[in-house]
Amino acid sequence: MKDVLTENAVKAETSKISARKAQVYYGTNHAIKDVDVEILDKTVTAFIGPSGCGKSTFLRCLNRMNDTIPSCRVEGSITLDGEDIYDKRVDPVQLRAKVGMVFQKPNPFPKSIYDNVAYGPKIHGLTRSKAELDEIVEKSLRRAALWNEVKDRLQTPGTGLSGGQQQRLCIARAVATSPEVLLMDEPCSALDPIATAQVEELIDELRTNFSVVIVTHSMQQAARVSQRTAFFHLGNLVEYGETGQIFTNPKDPRTESYITGRIG
């Protein structure tokens, strides 16, 4: 495993998602305070921080998955390509088609491998023929580095795969809807090192088309796959910058303590 997957520096500098003074409340609990962040296009951004610091909560704000929690309230502005995603005119369903999500635990649907991947394209009507759908399924499974393992058993249940394969299936499923941003909430926490390495390579590959935001507890992972890193602590965004700078030369003493293992 290479220590740094991407030697090339961040080239794309266009902002994809930007948050201004974002606040999140769960009932009376103020979970996210004054977060300002610019997430760049075609870049992997890592969110790190101790448990309960709000990084997953903030990630879920980016495609309004928090809408499913009744007590959750978001203030401030979060824009995607300059458009406020919490605007009343924005349909959260369409937003989530553009901002896909991969979850901590692999959650394949109780359907065949094929139907799992074809789910998004079918719902959004992305294909006009069966052949086109087949093509999308194959392409997505190839991108998720799963095609060779499952091409002979596309009609078997997705739940019958191993944990690592299931997670790659979920990534293929998210990729199939061709989102613009892919949010990943600790996608490797349930995987063994080999599957983790496969998923990490995949994330780096996805960067050529998408902007990827990944929440991780592993600082090595953040250092390996991301170009930008944001450090959250107690609901605040403490520091945000280029990954190399965060890990070698953090400006904030809290970041340094966390990275060197003194807090968290």
């Binding site: 495609n63 896909g100 979850f103 649907f109 809807t177």
Partner: peptide, 18 residues
């Protein structure tokens, strides 16, 4: 039915009824 399945579907841009 686990909430994770619902989240997975909603996260792909499906409506609640889908």
């Amino acid at each position: 039915v686990p909430q994770s399945l619902r989240d997975g579907s909603l996260g792909l841009g499906a409506t609640p009824s889908e």
